[in-house]
């Protein structure tokens, strides 16, 4: 019998190295038995096949039915290019749902970026085909839709990317989310004021931002002070 010189445990006669520390077995009086069966089997069962792409394909097949119905109805009965709107909506729905299904690992950052891009494309189509013409459509698209979508996407992406990279507990996460929400609302109000013809005028969002900042600072202080946290838990327990 062989013993690990590091761990002091007896090893199986088929073990070429210690299972605990990896030290190689070197015992001239009893070499490793390469012919005896190992204590555990060596064949691995492969993981079950991933059927999520199949679900994404099935969803695409199901959604293609209303797409076809809209397209054929539009072609037969006319009435302008109205079918682009429902078809665009259905395609957008598929992009939003199929992204997570087709992604092998959870990748929220590229998926959120993709979703924002898909929403922008759909809104662009609505703007371009709208009854008031391309110029008017592009006016609200560039001054209102594009900035709001970009702000909302950035406000979603930032905390997701940050929290995936740096671990944070509940209080720090909440503090980040408060600052993020405050900044997002400022961004949205800026976009609205820009569209209304009063660029860089803030009327209400700065109040929300200051409240959010105050809340975040309070949360970070509580996070840094275990005594304060314990006191709050004691007084506010439910």
């Amino acid at each position: 019998m062989s013993y690990c010189v590091n761990c002091g445990v007896e090893l199986d006669r088929t073990a070429a190295c210690c299972a605990l520390c990896g030290t190689e077995v070197c015992n001239p009086s009893q070499p490793v038995d390469m012919t005896a069966p190992k204590p555990f089997p060596e064949e691995m069962q492969p993981p079950p096949p991933n059927n999520r792409p199949l679900i994404a394909g099935l969803l695409a097949a199901l959604l293609s039915l209303p797409v076809l119905v809209c397209l054929v109805t539009n072609l037969v009965f006319g009435g302008g290019a109205w079918s682009v709107y429902p078809i665009g909506g259905i395609v957008l729905f598929w992009v939003l749902t199929a992204g997570p299904l087709l992604s092998r690992k959870p990748r929220p950052v590229p998926l959120i970026a993709l979703d924002a891009f898909a929403v922008l494309v759909y809104l662009f189509v609505i703007a371009a085909l709208g009854g008031q013409g391309l110029i008017v459509g592009l006016h609200w698209y560039l001054r209102l839709a594009l900035p709001i979508v970009v702000v909302v996407a950035a406000a979603t992406l930032f905390p997701v990317a940050y929290l995936r990279r740096y671990r944070a507990d509940g209080l720090v996460t909440s503090a980040i989310l408060f600052v993020d929400a405050g900044l997002a609302l400022v961004g949205i109000e800026l976009a609205l004021s820009f569209f209304a013809g009063h660029p860089f005028q803030l009327s209400w969002s700065w109040i929300v931002l200051i409240s959010c900042l105050a809340m975040s600072v309070a949360l970070l202080i509580i996070d840094r002070s275990p005594h304060l946290l314990a006191e709050l838990r004691r007084r506010l327990h439910v």
């Binding site: 761990c7 002091g8 445990v9 210690c18 299972a19 605990l20 520390c21 555990f40 060596e42």
Partner: peptide, 23 residues
């Protein structure tokens, strides 16, 4: 294998012989 090693070598240090098999 820190947990396994810590646990089993603790027994060895206490004078309890341990034989190890693994996959």
């Amino acid at each position: 294998t820190d947990l396994e090693r810590g646990f089993l070598t603790r027994l060895v240090r206490d004078g309890i012989p341990v034989k190890v098999e693994s996959n």
